[in-house]
């Protein structure tokens, strides 16, 4: 019974959006309204103002850093909600509880690979302002390495390596780190999350330690995302 109303709704939305499309600015044009002074400002001024070549990172961690704080909070919320839902869940009805694998090749290869993955993740985090990447991408890679560990060695051993309490504390601490950096702007006499405006030294362009607070925020977000992924996976896998 729910098919017909759903179809009608979808057709209605499709019709409205199709009408919209006929008058939308053409795809790929250089003179579309969205390519206005706001965008040009970012591209033209960003290198002087935020001091890093990666404009996207500059927008995420500086111009619109407040949104990104919200974004980190969404992650935090999801972890919290998932942890609360899965609290005390023992993986009892899931067909096969997750356990350590017996596969020797898998274990040895993962032992070898995981450090490299982690180093790469750290690289992506700390070089996020110079090249494609950043806290979110790097954090995901870091988290991925730990996910690999979890899949291969099982939740029990992972919990011994990273106690669940640590994961949660890290989660809160990394998120609060973001707030602290923001409050640093206030302490320095500027607004919340201010970077260059608060007199944070931007450093030399293109160097590792450049971009002022961007670098600090990026680091925090990297830890945050890694912790989030570990926490989520640990909870989904079931507590030991």
């Amino acid at each position: 019974m729910r098919h017909l109303p759903a179809l009608l709704l979808v057709v209605a939305i499709a019709y409205v959006l199709a009408l919209t499309l006929t008058e939308a600015p053409a795809f790929g044009g250089l003179d579309v309204p969205a390519r206005n002074e706001v965008m040009r400002f970012y591209l033209d001024e960003e290198l002087d103002q935020a001091g890093i070549p990666n404009t996207v990172t500059a927008i995420i961690f500086d111009y619109r850093a407040y949104d990104t704080m919200g974004e980190a909070t969404v992650l935090f919320t999801a972890v919290g909600a998932a942890a609360a839902v899965l609290a005390g869940h023992a993986g009892k009805l899931v067909a096969r509880p997750m356990a350590a694998t017996d596969d020797v090749i898998l274990r040895i290869v993962s032992r070898m690979v995981i450090p490299f993955v982690q180093v790469f993740g750290i690289y992506v985090v700390v070089y996020g302002h110079l090249s494609p990447g950043g806290g979110f991408a790097g954090g995901t890679i870091l988290g991925g390495s730990m996910a690999l560990y979890l899949f291969v060695f099982g939740p029990k051993r992972t919990a011994r390596k990273i106690p669940p309490a640590w994961g949660e504390i890290m989660e809160g601490a990394a998120a609060f780190w973001y707030v602290l950096v923001g409050l640093g702007g206030v302490l320095l006499g500027a607004n919340f999350l201010a970077n260059a405006a608060a007199g944070v030294p931007l450093g030399v362009q293109g160097q590792l330690f450049s971009g002022g607070a961007i670098w600090l925020i990026g680091l925090g977000v990297g830890v945050k995302v890694a912790a989030t992924i570990v926490n989520l996976l640990v909870h989904l896998a079931g507590e030991t």
Binding site: F27, G28, G29, L30, V32, A34, R35, Y42, L43, E46, L47, P53, N54, T55, V56, S131, P132
Partner: peptide, 13 residues
Amino acid sequence: SIGYAHGTLSPII
């Protein structure tokens, strides 16, 4: 797609 324009580079200056 809104952000893309023909002949543009990724925004790393």
